[in-house]
């Protein structure tokens, strides 16, 4: 949303925007109630989502929490929590460009440095399943595309 507003202010320099150029603002206003509800829901369910995701990922591959013989569960939780919170604000603001610029492009290189792409691939795949189980369909539909973007960028397929 903010990125789109920013772009709009450039493209309409010295003229009036037409209806199609303003459409995204109307769409955003219309979608704001469900965005706000989803944001609050993610905040409310944060620890539950984290716990369920952790347990499922652990079942899939416990070695994902082990790096060179060290238990990295705490680090995994810290990283996943950060991405989840950025995801929540991205749902609220409808701004994946900002998510990419402020977090994902940087975090992608860091995850690669630690060879954690497979862990990210599995984590954000599982988190999508957990979100679908815990949030109403319409809310999960707002969250999952962003989690999929996280998975593709951090999991190494982009």
């Amino acid at each position: 949303m903010l990125s789109q507003l920013d772009r709009l202010s450039f493209t309409v320099d010295g003229r009036y925007a037409d209806d199609s150029e303003l459409q995204f603002i109307a769409d955003y206003i219309r979608s704001f109630p469900i965005r706000a509800q989803t944001y609050l829901k993610l905040q409310e369910l944060e620890s539950k989502l984290m716990q369920q995701t952790y347990q499922k990922v652990r079942l899939i591959d416990p070695m994902l929490f082990n790096h060179n013989g060290n238990d990295i569960t705490a680090k995994w939780k810290q990283d996943t929590l950060r991405v989840l919170r950025y995801t929540a604000v991205t749902v609220l603001m409808d701004d994946t460009d900002t998510l990419r610029d402020r977090l994902l492009l940087w975090f992608q290189t860091i995850m690669k440095a630690f060879n954690a792409q497979r862990s990210c691939d599995v984590t954000y795949q599982v988190l999508q399943e957990v979100v679908k189980q815990n949030l109403p369909h319409a809310q999960a539909n707002l969250v999952c595309p962003i989690l999929e973007l996280n998975r593709r960028l951090l999991g190494g397929s982009l």
């Binding site: 940087w106 290189t109 860091i110 690669k112 440095a113 630690f114």
Partner: peptide
């Protein structure tokens, strides 16, 4: 520090 992490941090 992990060398690759260090280098990524230097270049950012």
């Amino acid at each position: 520090t992990n060398l690759l992490f260090l280098l990524e941090t230097w270049w950012w």
